[in-house]
Design a protein around this nucleic acid. Sequence first.
DNA 1: ATGCTTCCCTAACAAGTGTTTGGTAGGTTA
DNA 2: TAACCTACCAAACACTTGTTAGGGAAGCAT
Lengths: 232, 232
Amino acid sequence: MPTNKPKAANQPTAENGPTAGKKRTAAKNQTATKKPQVTASPERRRELLAAAAEVFAAQGYNATTVRKIADAAGMLAGSLYYHFDSKESMLDEILSDFLTELWEGYDTVLAAGLGPRETIEALVTESFREIDRHRAAVAIYQKESRTLAPQPRFHYLSDSQQKFEKAWLGTLERGVAAKVFRADLDVRLTYRFVRDTVWVAASWYRPGGQHSPEEIARQYLSMVLDGIALRT
Amino acid sequence: MPTNKPKAANQPTAENGPTAGKKRTAAKNQTATKKPQVTASPERRRELLAAAAEVFAAQGYNATTVRKIADAAGMLAGSLYYHFDSKESMLDEILSDFLTELWEGYDTVLAAGLGPRETIEALVTESFREIDRHRAAVAIYQKESRTLAPQPRFHYLSDSQQKFEKAWLGTLERGVAAKVFRADLDVRLTYRFVRDTVWVAASWYRPGGQHSPEEIARQYLSMVLDGIALRT
DNA sequence: ATGCTTCCCTAACAAGTGTTTGGTAGGTTA
DNA sequence: TAACCTACCAAACACTTGTTAGGGAAGCAT
């Protein structure tokens, strides 16, 4: 499954033509297990991934060279390949680790059988907690997910987005039906607004700031649920 | 779009000179008019910039090669340099053009002497109109502004952000003082939420969709001002 | 015809890209 | 002691990147 990578840089340029490849891959491909190092300590691995995530989040994935990552980790570029088999697989691991943890939290909330309003409140709070814990990963997800999702390797991003939409949209609709939320608002539009605002917070949130995730969630929910206008 | 065929080439570069030194002409200073082509028709220039903006928005600035831009424009990479003197200057022109137009609209609104709530409404509506007209530029701005702003060349991005914050925050505070907005919400947090949600819309908005900019603004304002919860 | 201008192409260059190969210091085990 | 494994470095390789020279076809003015 993770074996053959299209070597050079992708590209949908219709015809790769006869002039394309220069016989680069020197018939090395036979032993299936391409995994380079499984023996490595998982701790060092996580350290390196954390370093990489910071750089990815700060500079963007494409603008980040493996040499910058290695620099941040205090080693040389080539040495990274003892731990990971490509730059892309680092990104992959960062994102899938994050999403796995995220959905653990979400699924717990969704299985709790709360009412619509309480579900929204719990989801938002949980989201800000995830931002607190995976700031870098969330920022990367925000910036790159749209470009990555079409790639087969990152198909789980699309899956996640669909699950995401289903959970939020479903809750909103349930709330409208239960006369907990207003019926005159476009549910899909509302969903987009809510979703975006929550996650964009990763771009300005700094852990250890003056607002805890719970406080931010409280303020945000107050705004979205009750509005900022003063009732008269 | 006529796909360019001339992708053969790729010659073996006679000697990969170990004489690496040879610093390229940095020429970073833009002290005076160093424009390479002023003679070019401004119309073609805008066409090319529009094409570039689309690719930048879709793939990200760093992930976009000048060859992709040229492809989208139906020409070859080198030909772009007849119109622009660098890839960066294309980005520069796209962003500064957008911001110039944006502030024309904003300044008009701010000078109208409206009340706090009406000012917010007008700003939001104006923002969605700008998204409608400069979707690509807004998307680029969203993705890259944080990385670009520190660079001297893009210092106007920081300026704009400060003006932006001043206008929005000022209006919100004015509204709180006038008892038009709630006093128990953190104004700075509210500002961030509102700002982000408005602009992130550029990532999903498609002109010609089922919602006009004005309709989106209306829905959004309804949510932020009055909340989505049903009043009982 | 000539020259000039506009706009693009061909072909290259040098620096930078992700990745591979071979080596090796230091620890652990036999 | 030797063999072995882990985690890294040094140096390259194959390709892509932004950018530049030189040239040439088409149009216009002289």
